[in-house]
Amino acid sequence: MKIFSNKNFVAWYFVFPVAFIHLFVIGIPSLASLALCLTDWRGLGEINYIGFENFIELFDDRYLKKAIINNVIWTIAFLTVPVGIALTCAYLLTGIKRGQMFFRLAFFFPYMLASVINCQIWKYLFHPIHGLGGFFERIGWDFLAVSPFTMKSTSLFAVAFVDGWHFWGFLVVIYLTGMYQVDNHLYEAADIEGATKFQKFRYITLPMIRPVFVFSIMIIIIWSVPVFDYVYILTGGGPAYSSEVIANYMYSQAFERFDVGYSSAIGTLMFFYVMIIVALFGLFRKAGWDI
């Protein structure tokens, strides 16, 4: 009985309610979903075990391959554009004494809006009749005459742009928090040495916010895997699968084609992919990375 009053055990009392809920809401359904990938279940009725048939089909599915490639492009895009802009803006904001709160709020505002609202705003802006395209056309310019959401060559980037637009403000807040933790004496010393603003950023700010930065990279990589809402609302993965991503494809298989077994197989792939990323970051941490 002594073990239950042990100081180390007390923490488990606090964790237990959440762990219990997680077990039923996430744990068991996730395990069931993993099990379904070996079946031909159609969402209703009989469940038949079919071994690895779904996985064999997966490797032959050209649209899934397309979706995976798009997810990779999406991840790269998010690791570069919003991160770059957010770092720059956060750094510039640290130098602003007056009205900083206004900019912080302005940058963060899209993140507070529901994805449906963000999507509708940009859909209207890019609308060929009511949007900027229609406006420019009326004054004789051909600029944006075609919505980038409806062109095969631009749809993925257009959706990523909208999602990135809503997301980068969140990164600004994270980076800004990290930057305020940096000891001011370091900057003062650098000023005495005659360092430029860029040098201070490169040799002081960036190394000092590394834990926050690496964390942001990790969440971007992980969050890029189940990206769904912006794609679903703006393009539905089209045109011609040009903006298709894994989660949207999985949704289509389960709820349009009623192929829940196959959809679970896609989900299983996503699960292992995320696990690998988490494991990699775990390894980095063990290797002494400050994350």
């Binding site: 890019f126 609308h127 060929p128 009749i129 009511h130 075609v146 919505s147 959401f149 409806t150 062109m151 089209g238 045109p239």
Partner: peptide, 17 residues
């Protein structure tokens, strides 16, 4: 008018058109 516009136009728009 075009495939791209067909993709961009919804219920209210095509009735208005």
């Amino acid at each position: 008018g075009s495939l791209e516009n067909y993709y961009a136009i919804g219920w209210d728009d095509f009735h208005a058109q």
